[in-house]
Design a binder for these strands. Structure first.
Length: 524
RNA sequence: GGCUCGGUAGCUCAGCCGGUUAGAGCGUGGGAUUCAUAACCCCAAGGUCGGGAGUUCAAGUCUCCCCCGAGCCA
C-alpha cells in the first residue's frame, strides 16, 4: 500500500533574499522527502513564499518598485536557489497567487459560519517587523521599542476581526500534550506552558494595509499575514490548473505528516494553526518539528554584525554537497548549530573524500586489478556469512530508525560508521598481502566481494543526504543510480538493501576519485 | 522581569530510571601499512562534568541559589 507523506518547509517571508537559515531548513526537508520517496511513499514536499504584510509593502516602497514586482523578484530568488541546489520540492506556493486568495476566502467563510470570528477593538503598540501587537509597559509615556527588533513600535487603535482562539483552549491543550505532536521533545514544554497560560483571541485583519488579501464583506480590511500564510500549505496541495477549492486541495495530501520549521515560529504552527484548522473542521497535521538556529564561529549571524553567510556565494565556492553533508551531519537536528570553517573543511574532507571516497577508490582498484575489472565471486562460503553482512544490515536499519525521528545526524553517522567498519575490515584482512599467495585467491575474492557490497550499501544510505555523491558512488560500482526525486516503488528499498544484491562479475568502471579534497583560500 | 532549553576533554556533542577507572568524532602526538585521494588502520595524551550549597552509603546524573548562552512570552 502506498503511503502519502506531505511535509512542508515554512513559506519563506520574501522581505529579503534567502539566507542560510532558510537553506538549512530546506536541505533538511529535502533529505527527509528523498528518504520517504525511497521508501515508496507518495511524497509531497511543499515550500514557497509568504508574500503579504506591511513589512514587505514597506521594503518594496523603500526599493522604489511596485509591491508585486518586488515580491516577484524575491520569490524568484528563492525558486532559483532551490533549483540550483537541487531541492526536490513538489510544490512551490506563493501566497500572492490569485488561487491562494480564493482558498483563504473559503476557509474564512467556514470559520466564520462556525462562529469563531468576532469583531473587536485592537488597541496597542505594533511591531512592523514582528507583524504583531506587543504588550508593553509604557509608564514613561515615550514610544516603546520592540525587544526583538529594537525598533520603535507604532501605536494602533483600530477595529479588527478576531479569531476566537479562546474557543480552542481545551482541544489545543490536549493536542500539545501528545508526545508525537511537537519535536524535538525539548521544545514541547515551552508550548505547553504558553497554552496553559490561557489562549487569547488574536486579530486577523488589518486596516489601511492594501498589500494583503481583502477580507470579504469588510471593506478596508485585509487579512493578517499569519492567517493567510499558514493556509498556503493547503493551497499548495491543490493542482495548479484544476479547481481551486478546499475540498480538492484537502483530498490531495492533507493533513500534512510533518511541518518542518525553525524554533522561532513553533507557536504559530503548534497552537494557532491547529486551532484555525479545528475552527474550520479540518484535520490537523501529525507533527511539527522546530529545528535550531545557526550561528557562525560562535556568533549570531546578522547584517549589522556583517557576518552573514550568503548562500549563493557559499554554493558557488564549495558546491552543494559539502554544505549538505556538513549541515546535516554535524548539527544535531533540532538543536542550535555553529558553522565553523575549519570544521567544515575537516569533516567534508575526512568523511566524504577520505573515509568514503577513498574507500570506494581502493576497493574498486583492487577488484579491477585482481579480478579482471569485475566484481569478484563471493568465494566458497555463502555471501551472507561475510562478517560485514550483519554490520551492514544493522547500519541500514539504524538509518531508517533515525530518519523516522528526524535524526538526520544519526542517519549520517550510521552511514559513516559503516564505511569506517569496512575500512577497518580491509586493514584487518589485508587482501593486498593475501593476493601474493595464489592459494588464497578465493579468500581475497570473498573479502573484496563483501567490501564492495557493503560499500554499495553505504552509497544507498547516502542517497537522501547527498544524492549526487551517492549516485557517483553507485556508478563506480557499476550499479544503477537512484532517483530520489521521483522515488521507488513500495518494497524496492528493502530489496535494494538486502545483502548480496551486488551481482558477481558485474563490470567495474575505472576508479576515479568520488570527491576531491576541498581546499579553501579565503573565507567561506 | 516570567517561562523553556542548554552550559561535560582545544572544538562539536553522547551520557536512560543517581552506583565499577566519565565516552565518541574532529583536532594534536606516536605507531603500523601500501590496495587507495599525503589516504586507510591502531594507540596515546587531554576533563576538579559552569559556580556554590544541600539530599544520599554514593551525584555529571536529584533539590535550591547564582553566573553564562539561546528561544519564547512580557
Amino acid at each position: 500500500m502506498v503511503h502519502r507523506f506531505t511535509l512542508t518547509t515554512p513559506l519563506y517571508y520574501v522581505n529579503d533574499k534567502p539566507h542560510i537559515g532558510s537553506v538549512y531548513t530546506t536541505l533538511a526537508a529535502d533529505a527527509m522527502a528523498r528518504w520517504r520517496r525511497l521508501q515508496g511513499d507518495r511524497v509531497c514536499l511543499i515550500t514557497g513564499c509568504d508574500e503579504h504584510g506591511l513589512k514587505i509593502q514597506r521594503s518594496a516602497a523603500a526599493a522604489g518598485v511596485p509591491t508585486q514586482d518586488y515580491v516577484d523578484r524575491m520569490a524568484g530568488h528563492f525558486a532559483a536557489l532551490w533549483q540550483r541546489i537541487g531541492i526536490s520540492h513538489d510544490r512551490f506556493v506563493r501566497t500572492s497567487a490569485p488561487r491562494h486568495q480564493g482558498l483563504v476566502h473559503e476557509f474564512y467563510e467556514r470559520v466564520r459560519r462556525n462562529g469563531h470570528i468576532r469583531m473587536g477593538q485592537q488597541q496597542g503598540w505594533y511591531c512592523v517587523a514582528c507583524e504583531e501587537f506587543k504588550d508593553v509597559d509604557n509608564e514613561d509615556g515615550g514610544t516603546p521599542r520592540c525587544a526583538i527588533h529594537d525598533r520603535p513600535l507604532e501605536w494602533r487603535d483600530e477595529e479588527n476581526l478576531f479569531f476566537c482562539l479562546s474557543h480552542f483552549q481545551e482541544p489545543v491543550t490536549r493536542l500539545v500534550e501528545r508526545e508525537s505532536f511537537i519535536g524535538p521533545p525539548s521544545r514541547r514544554r515551552e508550548v505547553q506552558r504558553f497554552v496553559e497560560a490561557g489562549l487569547r483571541d488574536f486579530s486577523i485583519s488589518r486596516v489601511d494595509l492594501p498589500w494583503g488579501i481583502p477580507v470579504p464583506h469588510q471593506p478596508g480590511h485585509t487579512f493578517y499575514v499569519w492567517f493567510d500564510a499558514l493556509l498556503g500549505y493547503i493551497t499548495a496541495l491543490g493542482s495548479p490548473d484544476g479547481p481551486q477549492d478546499l475540498t480538492t486541495a484537502l483530498a490531495s495530501g492533507w493533513p500534512a505528516q510533518l511541518h518542518l520549521i525553525g524554533k522561532d515560529i513553533l507557536r504559530f504552527h503548534a497552537v494557532y494553526w491547529p486551532a484555525m484548522l479545528l475552527a474550520a473542521d479540518l484535520p490537523l497535521p501529525e507533527r511539527v518539528f522546530g529545528h535550531g538556529f545557526l550561528t557562525r564561529e560562535g556568533r549570531k549571524m546578522g547584517k549589522t554584525l556583517g557576518n552573514t553567510l550568503d548562500p549563493e556565494a557559499l554554493f558557488a565556492k564549495v558546491g552543494v554537497e559539502p554544505v549538505r553533508w556538513y549541515l546535516l551531519r554535524d548539527i544535531q537536528f533540532g538543536e542550535d548549530g555553529d558553522i565553523q570553517q575549519k570544521r567544515f573543511l575537516d569533516l567534508v574532507n575526512n568523511d566524504l573524500a577520505n573515509t568514503i571516497g577513498n574507500l570506494v577508490n581502493r576497493t574498486v582498484s583492487m577488484s579491477r586489478r585482481w579480478f579482471e575489472g569485475c566484481v569478484p565471486p563471493e568465494g566458497e562460503e555463502d555471501a551472507a556469512s561475510h562478517p560485514l553482512a550483519p554490520v551492514a544490515t544493522a547500519a541500514t536499519a539504524r538509518v531508517g530508525r533515525c530518519f523516522a525521528r528526524q535524526d538526520l545526524q544519526g542517519a549520517a553517522m550510521a552511514t559513516l560508521g559503516l564505511a569506517e567498519a569496512v575500512n577497518g575490515h580491509l586493514s584487518e584482512q589485508a587482501p593486498w598481502s593475501a593476493i601474493k599467495d595464489a592459494s588464497r585467491r578465493d579468500g581475497v575474492a570473498a573479502v573484496l566481494y563483501g567490501v564492495l557490497e557493503a560499500t554499495r550499501l553505504v552509497g544507498l544510505c547516502l542517497q537522501p543526504l547527498v544524492p549526487e555523491l551517492s549516485n557517483r558512488l553507485l556508478i563506480q560500482l557499476g550499479c544503477e543510480p537512484l532517483d530520489s526525486r521521483h522515488g521507488l516503488p513500495p518494497g524496492a528499498w528493502e530489496r535494494l538493501v538486502r545483502w548480496g544484491g551486488l551481482p558477481h562479475g558485474q563490470p567495474l568502471p575505472e576508479a576515479s576519485p568520488l570527491m576531491a579534497r576541498l581546499e579553501l583560500d579565503g573565507d567561506l
